[in-house]
Simulated scan of single mutants.
Amino acid sequence: MFKFKTPSQKTLKTMSEVAGGNLENDFEAEAAEKIKDLTGHDHAKITSSGNNSIFIALSAVEGDVIVPDQGGWHGFKQIAKFLKKDIVTLKTDMGLINPDYLDEIEFKENSALIYTSFAGYCAEQDTKGISKYCKSNNITTIEDASAGIGDKKHNLGNGNYSDIIIASTGSPKIINVGSGGFITSNNKESFDNTKLPQKLSKTSQIVCSGICCELENVDEKLEVTLNATKHLKNNIDNTLHANKRGINVIIPHSNAKEISWNLKKALPINKSGFITTCPNYNRVKQKAIAVEIKNLAYECLEKEYLDKIIEEINNQL
């Protein structure tokens, strides 16, 4: 049986000790410093959730909020609507942002583009190209790096490319604490102008201690997940964005619902799941099977488990 990803034993032990009153460090300050080092941004704030990080980031936007037409996170639109921001939808190549398409839409001055490090978790976004276009056109870039933080290639979650970086540290993210999140930026004004939502999003020393632990090897955890996904893409035909780095595998298929159901029975997991069905705005808006490698415990990313997934998928297709 496959296992759903949970925080490491060291993380759980540390959080338990802090919950029991063993509080020798200011873990919130320590976590913020570590995240600043990781992103290269000057300012960082630990938040109570990824959605609260989005709320803070979008609160600072004066113009429109530009969102991808698929492969993003539904919270982008929900929170923008709540904040009464005008939303502009950007056409994508199955979730991948092509900066040229930004020339085809109209948006106000001081608008912001918000997107995830990986389109639908499946394909790495061209953060460099996106950044170059947006800097030239006065568009703030907001990268949700929940899935891309710790990138050894420094393409994702990199403050040189993204004006604002946000993330969730809930389960089963790369920084996997069960709750919490963060926001970083070099723009001090963005932080100064959003003090109220920051105050409302305060988290605990318990969560911050867990984040500190999870950050110790976040790059290795992301690398293992990327390599596992690559192994599946190399051995399954017709995967979406097959040559792109990602942390899940999406397989377009007209009979996606039935195949997904069969795979769930053939590949049982101890809780939650790792086989989902599209169309889904958070993935792609066409019929497809999504294999959420990011949801699996790291022990289940070893070759024997991955080959079992490959075998069952190829038997169904």
Rank of each mutant, 00 (worst) to 15 (best):
L102E: 00
T184M: 04
N295A: 15
K244I: 00
K128V: 08
G180N: 11
T225R: 15
I269Q: 14
T169A: 05
N186K: 09
G21H: 13
D144M: 08
V224E: 12
K81E: 15
I309Y: 06
G120F: 04
S162Q: 13
S146T: 15
K221T: 03
S16T: 15
Y305F: 14
I310C: 04
Y121I: 01
S16Q: 14
F55A: 04
G150P: 09
K128I: 07
I56K: 03
S209N: 07
S8K: 13
V177L: 04
I309P: 05
N262M: 07
K13N: 11
P172R: 10
N235R: 02
N138P: 02
T140R: 00
L102Q: 02
P268T: 10
Y115W: 13
I309L: 04
M15V: 10
V88P: 10
G181D: 00
L200T: 03
C122Q: 09
P68A: 05
T194E: 02
E304L: 01
A242E: 11
D126M: 10
E28T: 15
G159M: 11
D26N: 15
G180L: 07
E33N: 13
G40W: 06
K152Y: 11
I247N: 07
S48R: 01
S260L: 01
A57P: 01
L23C: 12
A228K: 12
E28G: 09
I164P: 05
K5A: 11
A290S: 15
F2P: 09
T239W: 09
E304I: 07
I114E: 04
G72T: 06
E124C: 01
E216S: 14
K108G: 01
L83W: 07
S48I: 10
P7C: 07
E189P: 00
S117D: 05
K153E: 15
S131E: 09
L90T: 10
I293W: 11
K5R: 15
I250D: 01
A147M: 14
N255E: 15
P197E: 08
F274A: 00
W261K: 13
I114K: 08
N98T: 03
T14S: 12
E311Y: 08
E214W: 07
A228G: 15
L200R: 06
C208I: 05
Q286M: 13
T14P: 00
T169N: 03
L102F: 01
A147L: 13
T47K: 03
E216F: 05
N234M: 02
L58I: 06
P268I: 05
E189H: 11
K45A: 10
